[in-house]
């Protein structure tokens, strides 16, 4: 983390990247559950493939309470028709860096860049100075290091 703790949000957006790296789907569903427990609204935006991975894993939408198309959600935020208090952008490639930078620009909420994958350190360097809070854990298959880092943020909201 590179900034002081933010206040607890009421509404959040989880922005999925390319689902090529396994950590993403696991962290996204876990984060939905964690936010739901704190009674924080959680919208998930992603490509059809990224959304499908979540919807198959959570067929009754126990955790995935609100889900939508990535491009549509971004357009709505850019047009100021919708916004959230916090955005979690899942990043493992260069496109993810660009999406996080865009969210930091168009959303009034705090943008958290959740960086993972084998090139996490490189991605984190690219994110410097883009106005996002960086949460970085190298690795593609084990979600636990990233989960622990995100938990620190969620706990800081209660402090």
């Amino acid at each position: 983390m590179n900034k002081p703790a933010s206040p607890k949000p009421r509404t959040t957006l989880i922005l999925l990247g390319c689902p090529q790296v396994p950590v993403q789907t696991s962290i996204a569903l876990w984060l939905c559950a964690a936010l739901n427990k704190q009674e924080i609204g959680c919208l998930v935006g992603g490509t059809p493939a990224a959304r499908s991975l979540l919807e198959v894993a959570d067929p009754d939408h126990h955790y995935l309470t609100d889900v939508g198309d990535l491009d549509t959600i971004i357009e709505e935020i850019a047009d100021e028709k919708r916004d959230v208090d916090a955005v979690f952008v899942l990043i493992h490639n260069e496109a993810g860096v660009a999406y996080a930078a865009t969210m930091a620009e168009i959303s009034a909420g705090t943008t958290y860049a959740l960086i993972f994958g084998d090139a996490a350190e490189e991605r984190a360097q690219e994110m410097e100075g883009l106005g996002c809070r960086l949460i970085t854990a190298k690795g593609s298959h084990n979600p636990l290091p990233l989960k622990r880092r995100v938990q620190e943020v969620l706990k800081s909201w209660d402090a």
Binding site: L16, G17, C18, Q20, G46, T47, A49, A50, L70, I74, E75, A78, N93, A95, G96, V97, A98, Y99, A101, T102, E105, I106, E126, L130
Partner: peptide, 25 residues
């Protein structure tokens, strides 16, 4: 809405635009 790392550049030659376009995958 353009996706990108600021500042994003758009080029123009007469009526032709050159610009970056990003997709997640």
């Amino acid at each position: 809405a353009m996706i990108g790392i600021p500042p994003v550049l758009i080029g123009i030659d007469a009526d032709t635009l050159t610009f970056p376009f990003t997709k997640p995958c």
